[in-house]
Design a protein around this nucleic acid. Structure first.
Lengths: 172, 172
DNA sequence: ACCAAGTAGCTTAGCGCTAAGCCACTTGCC
DNA sequence: GGCAAGTGGCTTAGCGCTAAGCTACTTGGT
């Protein structure tokens, strides 16, 4: 089974090998893919967290600011739109907005068309911060990807899109 | 820029397009890869969580049992080895072990060679449960991967290994 | 043999999330 | 026009994690 003396040797291979020893009946091919996806996600999460810390925000707050920034002028969305986009409960959203509002990075104001609702708007300070922070985050990710050449990166991106597309259809 | 009328259309593409509109200066290639990795990790986390719920455990507890199982007979490791393997603080480990011990799936006993330490051992019930649960988890992952053919899956796995290897070297 | 430094596991405080429930307001049906 | 059902945002309780600090024990230098 261990042909390819090439590289091998990543933590997921070690786990796969252990399973092969104690449970040779298992087909662990899928675990190899998703195990790596899990570890990459976690490692990059920590790394980008550090990049954002310099701006006094965490990954969660970054995502809120970035979503407002991407929406374009006037950088306004409702808490509901934000929590839906970020796959977050409204309770979690309330906490993030409190923190960002306290830091002066966004502003809550009543929705003129619906007295239940709010509008959340980026302040000038928030706009300035997110425009710098998004660059810093991208730099970290670009650096991490630089171990692959452009062809490999493109191929990886397409395979991931295909996988994401097919798995998100089959929703629970 | 939007050649390829082919498929496109995944949530990450939508985000990339938004950035291209409001910040055309940004190079978002890396974000395309890591954004998909993040979403896949999250989606599969939820799905496997559901598969394990049937056995009365969560993903965290599953990982503890699986690590003991992979270690082979006599299915014994120290809390320290477990928390190191699972990238968890000792505090977090204590909580998981409490829960699993209460459920009768493992047993804590003093380490005969070091009176500071413990040995954590799978019970028969724990062994039986993890052997079933690992199959259920693999089934979910295999199903999710089935949208790709074997060639694509293999290619993806190798690209991910390469990426994981190069990014884990460059530690913070 | 002794003592400083290191290590194992647990405890506590704090954080950010979810799930469930609340009130205020809006919508749609009669 | 009035009322049931739906929706938006907030609050609370509970969960699992980290970071920091504790005690008990071990190790290594002198």
């Amino acid at each position: 089974m261990s042909e390819r003396p090439e590289q091998r040797k990543d933590p997921v291979d070690a786990i796969i090998d252990q399973w092969a020893t104690v449970r040779p009946d298992l087909d662990t091919a899928a675990m190899e893919v998703f195990g790596r996806i899990y570890r990459l996600s976690r490692a990059m999460g920590e790394r980008t967290e550090k990049a954002y810390a310099r701006f006094g925000i965490g990954r969660g707050e970054f995502d809120v600011l970035a979503t407002l920034r991407r929406a374009g002028e006037p950088y306004t969305l409702s808490p509901r739109q934000l929590s839906a986009t970020l796959m977050l409960t409204t309770g979690g959203m309330t906490g993030r907005l409190d923190k960002l509002e306290r830091a002066g990075l966004l502003r809550r104001s009543p929705d003129p068309h619906d007295r239940r609702g709010l509008k959340v708007t980026l302040t000038d300070k928030g706009l300035e911060l997110i425009d710098e922070a998004v660059g810093a985050g991208l730099a970290v990710q670009t650096e991490a990807l630089s171990g692959l050449d452009d062809g490999q990166a493109g191929q990886l991106s397409e395979l991931l899109r295909e996988l994401l597309r097919t798995t998100e259809d089959r929703q629970d």
